[in-house]
Amino acid sequence: MDILEILSYGFIQRALLAGVLIAVLCSVLGVFLVLRRLSLIGDGLAHVTFGSTAIALAFKIYSAASLLVSLPVVLLASLGILRLTEKARLSGDAAIGIVSAVGIAAGIILASVGGGYNVDLLSYLFGNILSITREEVLIAAGLFCVVMLLLGLFFNDLLAITFNEELARVSGVQTRLISSVLVMLTALSVVLAMKLVGIMLISSLLILPAVSALQLARSFKACIGLAALQGCCSVVAGIFVSFITNLPTSAMIVLINLLFFGCACSLRRLLTPGNSN
């Protein structure tokens, strides 16, 4: 099977395009989230989306319009996670756990009260990288531009609060605002990208490229770059490998990310002198 033939399929082209955009997006956000100990926020927000989509379906709002319900709810939930870590002095994972449990419980209760749904909720909630439409490529591109632009504008502020919040505040960074920007960008990306490529891919792209880059990076900018590179390569390689091996695409992308992580770990061992200090 030659590459040109693989590339001749429209759905492969769209998967590559939107997949790469989303991968870069998630990998870059992931570096900040992992360092702020919010790496599971992707899963947490996916569960909230489940709950909020249940609300939308209870009111017979389907597909695109259900975003109008779930987007504000998920944005609020992301801020809720942030406030819980600040106010209740909870660790990030505990705060995410609380919010995601509430999301799921809401979905379940609505399902049992409403006597089931007209469709299988989960299948509508999570997309598949192989079934991205032309409009969704545009959505991915728009999302990519918005998130990258904001990350660029706030880059140093984000670096400062991720490094140390107290020091950032004394450098005049509005730490609350910047943290909110970070989690809201994450929420936006999770909600939109989940519909395109599914949650398994999103949550692994938020974590794995970042942790691999942390093994090797020699500067923060390099870390962002390496993470983006891994995200991007894993999607491209995953799609081609899925083609050659006839195995599910998203799972293949996750596996390739794991492989990269393994390589990064062993490379780090090789590069650092044997003695631990």
Binding site: F163, A168, A213, A222
Partner: peptide, 23 residues
């Protein structure tokens, strides 16, 4: 494990002199 270099870390001290966007 924070991957910032010395220069990057020290550079953050200059943010206090800047307005949005702080480059």
């Amino acid at each position: 494990i924070f991957p910032a270099t010395v220069a990057e870390t020290v550079g953050l001290g200059l943010l206090s002199l800047k307005r949005f966007p702080r480059r």
